[in-house]
Design a protein around this nucleic acid. Sequence first.
DNA 1: GTAGTTATTGAGATTCAGTATCAATTGAGA
DNA 2: TCTCAATTGATACTGAATCTCAATAACTAC
Lengths: 144, 144
Amino acid sequence: MTTAPASQFDAIAALEDAGLRITGQRRQVVAAIDRKDAGFTAEALASELDGVGRATVYRTLKLLVEADVICKLALPDGTPMYSPSRVEHHHHSVCTSCGAVEEFRDSTVERVLRSLNREIEGEIIGHRMEVFIRCRACLISTDE
Amino acid sequence: MTTAPASQFDAIAALEDAGLRITGQRRQVVAAIDRKDAGFTAEALASELDGVGRATVYRTLKLLVEADVICKLALPDGTPMYSPSRVEHHHHSVCTSCGAVEEFRDSTVERVLRSLNREIEGEIIGHRMEVFIRCRACLISTDE
DNA sequence: GTAGTTATTGAGATTCAGTATCAATTGAGA
DNA sequence: TCTCAATTGATACTGAATCTCAATAACTAC
Ligand SMILES: [Mn+2]
Ligand SMILES: [Mn+2]
Ligand SMILES: [Zn+2]
Ligand SMILES: [Zn+2]
């Protein structure tokens, strides 16, 4: 038994909690994201939602990132990707072949930061960590 | 006594080793980078080098990244930054106020990856870690 | 040193992601 | 239902990065 996936209602509630209006377009964006099972780009999402303007898709993605409903991450070449966020504080592994995103918590990461706190001059205000993988499915499909 | 800074000759040698021609423009780019004491953007470098075309600056930066002479990293908002690379394998702390970049080695980071190797389905092919800080100088200059 | 080959260059066009504008629309509370 | 600020979308715009291609210059061989 694994963690229950975030439903689209959580996302809508998060937008409401932020004092935002629940519009048809925002529902469409949330519903489309809910169908995703891998990372996706803003542009892909936009062209898949014919009823919703491009600018609105970008605006909504930004709102959802701010509301911690989705995460914005990046491939090795910098291409921005989005993925639903299902775990409180976490990092990501991204399959560079198929875009599959896994979230992971690892206390060791936090230990790194604590150790840096001593080494580094100044105040730590944030961090980013992404692990790039070739997922099992992709390893198999390339014939071993 | 700290590690000797990489000189511009190392960079030139790296380009030679890659079988590339040593041109006046590439010397200018390398020399300008050598003067930097913080992270910089490609565009800033380009507009500072009047004698060198913009496209050439971008091309040279890419070559230097491939040659491990400089590192390409990113601010929290995704803005690409470059910085000279002086340590073998490392990660970065970036001051989001002044752009100062520190490189650090931390064996704990590598330990994180080893632990992930067990958790994660698939093969790890790379990773990225950036720590965002407010450096001591910036903390002070903002009046505590 | 000269000549030949070919990598490199620069100006400008082009692409692409993302943002700004602003008049028209609409959600949500009163 | 009424009201009005929030939201939307078409489109223009920005800025980073890449592409094109004729002109140039770095290396190599002689
Ligand atoms: Mn996430
Ligand atoms: Mn570096
Ligand atoms: Zn995969
Ligand atoms: Zn600073």
